Amino acid sequence: MSYAIIGFGNIGQALAKAFARNDIEVSVATTRDPQSFASTAAAIGPQIIPKTLAEAVKADIIFLAVRFESHPDVAKALPNWKGKTIIDVTNAYGVSPEELGGQPSSRFVAQAFTGAKLVKGFNHLGAAVLGQDPAMKGGRRVVFLASDDDGTAEEVGALAENLGFSPIKLGGLSEGGLLVQARGNTWGQLIFKDLVKFD
């Protein structure tokens, strides 16, 4: 299984730290030349591999960690995303429900990535918190996952565990997804809730 993070701002770098901490290789890409962020990637760890967008989208599981309004540009990188899993880490704060066609933001994003399976996740924490070691006081920091495909949610849940987090599945995008989505000037009820699960 291969992994990529598209977007290498604060959230992308926080995710990269989780991969480095667990010695799991991940490609990172932006729309810029990989050389422009190679030193930042190297500072996080040797597991963080800068690539072009065209190279990075060859991965099986892709974290979409760009600004919400940039997702259509990423979607153009492939004509069809069949066989790919997209983890939607975007937040559509400030985007009106009308612009989203009244849909949950993740369903709107899913339409751009034709053929992909989509999981909403890793978006409810700020970058400073997401970048910390998720092992906390004998427990593990929670990440919420929502998807209309149970098998894909399980697969991403297994990855979250490998990265040291405790995944909690919220159900489909129209139900649980709304708890971790922003749209208009409102945040979902679970956004910014920093929870720790004790097994």
Rank of each mutant, 00 (worst) to 15 (best):
K197F: 14
D133M: 01
Q103I: 04
F165D: 03
G164K: 03
A146K: 02
H124Y: 08
G9E: 06
F144W: 12
L178F: 00
S39M: 12
L170F: 10
G45W: 03
V129L: 09
R140H: 14
G164V: 00
F37Q: 06
L125W: 06
L170S: 08
F113G: 08
G45T: 04
N185K: 13
D150M: 01
A135F: 02
V95S: 01
N185H: 12
A153K: 08
R141E: 05
G126I: 12
A127G: 02
E69T: 14
L130F: 06
K197H: 14
A14D: 10
A42N: 12
I191Q: 10
T152C: 11
T85Y: 02
A65V: 10
L195W: 13
S96V: 02
A4R: 08
G102T: 09
A160I: 05
D33T: 13
T90D: 04
A135E: 13
L159I: 04
P79N: 13
S166M: 09
A112H: 14
P104N: 14
A20Q: 03
T186Y: 02
T114D: 14
R141W: 06
I48A: 03
D199R: 06
T85S: 10
A75K: 06
S2R: 13
G7Q: 02
I168W: 04
P46G: 08
K117T: 12
I49S: 08
Q181K: 00
H124V: 11
L159A: 03
F63G: 03
A41V: 10
V28E: 05
G176C: 08
F113H: 05
I86E: 09
S174F: 05
P134H: 06
S36M: 11
D88G: 02
L159S: 07
I61C: 08
D60N: 14
I5C: 04
K58H: 12
V119Q: 02
T90A: 05
F37H: 10
W81N: 02
G172H: 03
L163I: 00
A4F: 07
D73G: 05
Q35M: 11
